[in-house]
């Protein structure tokens, strides 16, 4: 049983948590933050949705698919999407680590580029560590959400 209070709170809290997660993700490699904590906070936002609205809400309510309630949860298409996110994130992290080898640099060498004259921000620092961070982010979100949705259905 989920109450109206929980659902109303979830509507307010989830966007705030997602914004904090994105800001922490882009803070990484300069300030505290990065892919891991951003992924964990994104997962907590999904956890609130799962706790407030039930396990089938993501597939039935948001994506508009029909779900059989008694079906094996690990075969749900959204769980398969989480697993794919985990695999792609892992591949991205490994490939971004291997990419400096093409330029004759050691494994996981990082660099950055300053962009001048960008609208709104004026100058923007684009770091190559962002690719590795995004891989870690995808691995954390995919792995934790797979665990959450499969174990939560037990």
């Amino acid at each position: 049983m989920t109450t109206v209070i929980m659902r109303t709170t979830a509507r307010v809290i989830v966007p705030i948590i997602l914004v904090v997660a994105i800001s922490l993700f882009f803070d990484g490699h300069n300030l505290p933050g990065g892919g891991f904590i951003g992924g964990v906070l994104t997962t907590t936002a999904f956890a609130i949705v799962y706790m407030g609205f039930g396990l089938d809400f993501l597939e039935r309510g948001i994506l508009g698919r029909d779900v059989d309630p008694g079906k094996e949860p690990s075969r749900d298409r959204v769980v398969l999407a989480y697993r794919r996110l985990f695999a792609y994130g892992f591949a991205l992290a490994v490939l971004s680590g291997l990419a400096p080898l093409l330029f004759g640099k050691p494994f996981l060498t990082q660099t950055f580029e300053m962009l001048e004259g960008v609208p709104i921000y004026d100058h923007l620092e684009v770091a190559s560590a962002l690719a590795f961070d995004f891989g870690v982010y995808c691995v954390v979100v995919g792995g934790l959400l797979t665990i959450l949705s499969v174990v939560g259905a037990e």
Binding site: I13, V20, L24, L31, P32, L41
Partner: peptide
């Protein structure tokens, strides 16, 4: 940066209490 720490801790604490 300690404000960020407190923000994340508050979010995690909220989830734990609700769960």
């Amino acid at each position: 940066l300690f404000i960020t720490v407190s923000l994340v801790l508050a979010i995690i604490g909220f989830i734990a209490t609700v769960a």
